[in-house]
């Protein structure tokens, strides 16, 4: 089978496997990512979808926007569901009842991935199922009205971390789930955004090619929760990458590659200031939070740079 080159002209000749007419908000980042994921795939896909915006809004009865077999699961078990489907597929393949190569993807938002679905995700990765788990991270429980999750960035105003005279938004930094997935020692882990469509699609293809578990974390803008105009999804994703708030990187069999290094790393406030959820951070009494946000970004980015340099040095040593 020939693979479609990652050029928009060629890709646009493929069938869109997520239709319009879904009820995700105008300007939502999630369906942009999903369209790109399904366009990248070159084999039949079966998906499980944890409860969340994507699941609810793409399948309002009696409609479905999906043109692939798609299973709705509860918040906590998308990874477990897709593990079971993959195990069944393997069994049927052994018996010769299926010959086709099919791949399995679980989708979850940050609530369904970082928080509620975390144990089933961790278990599925450890058991080594041949699945891809894709998280679209919009940084809060947006579906139920913007409640904080463990993916919500430091200082963000949400309905359960309301900025006011008592607290200046969320008091805790977000947890680095991508790194936690790396610690599972699985063959492929990556981070990307739909603004970087070629990067995203390359990573999806790599994840699908791997024999074993893969995880991709995709930043997906939510204009309702981020408090931005509806046309900002791509612009804000680019700012997230250019400030190194959300670096593009991948781990192939444990080996780190940083896929994009901004020529000039922008200060994190460039990413924060376009979003209403961080507005209160720009008043003088909250300056220390902005400083802390910058420190966190710097520390994580520098750790990535050091680690990549270490890998390169080691490989050079081996070559000599």
């Amino acid at each position: 089978m020939s693979t479609t080159p990652l050029r928009l002209k060629e890709l646009s000749k493929k069938e869109d496997l997520l239709t319009g007419g879904h009820r995700l908000c105008s300007g939502c980042g999630a369906p942009i990512a999903i369209r790109q994921i399904l366009l990248a795939a070159e084999m039949p896909i079966v998906a499980a979808n944890a409860t969340g915006c994507l699941e609810v809004s793409t399948t309002i009865y009696p409609y479905s926007a999906w043109k692939i077999p798609w299973i709705h699961t509860a918040f906590e078990n998308a990874a477990a569901t897709i593990s079971g489907v993959e195990a069944m597929y393997k069994a049927l393949k052994k018996k010769g009842k299926i010959t086709e190569r099919i791949k399995f993807i679980a989708f979850g938002g940050d609530g369904g991935t970082y928080d509620i679905g975390f144990q089933s995700l961790s278990g599925a990765m450890e058991r080594g199922h041949d699945i891809v788990y894709i998280c679209y991270d919009n940084g809060a429980y947006m579906n139920t009205g913007i409640q904080r999750s463990s993916a919500t960035p430091l200082g963000a105003n949400t309905t359960t971390s309301p900025a006011g005279s008592v607290i200046p938004g969320k008091m805790q930094p977000r947890k680095n789930l991508t790194k936690i997935m790396v610690a599972h020692g699985i063959p492929y882990v990556a981070q990307t955004t739909p603004a970087h469509w070629r990067d995203l699609m390359t990573k999806v293809r790599k994840a699908l090619e791997v024999d074993g578990p893969a995880f991709i974390n995709i930043l997906a803008s939510c204009n309702r929760g981020w408090r931005t105009p509806t046309d900002r999804a791509i612009q804000d994703s680019k700012l997230a990458v250019d400030t190194c708030f959300w670096p593009l990187y991948e781990y192939e069999n444990g080996r780190l590659t940083i896929n994009y290094k901004p020529k000039e790393k922008k200060p994190v406030v460039e990413f924060l200031k376009t979003q209403g959820r961080f507005k209160h951070l720009f008043s003088p009494e909250n300056e220390h939070i902005l400083e802390r946000a910058q420190e966190i970004v710097d520390r994580e980015w520098e750790a990535l740079l050091r680690e990549e340099a270490m890998w390169k040095a080691e490989e050079e040593k081996k070559e000599q």
Partner: peptide, 11 residues
């Protein structure tokens, strides 16, 4: 360039 096509959330 088809950027509009690849970035549209609603196909």
């Amino acid at each position: 360039c088809l950027f509009c096509w690849i970035y549209c959330p609603d196909s």
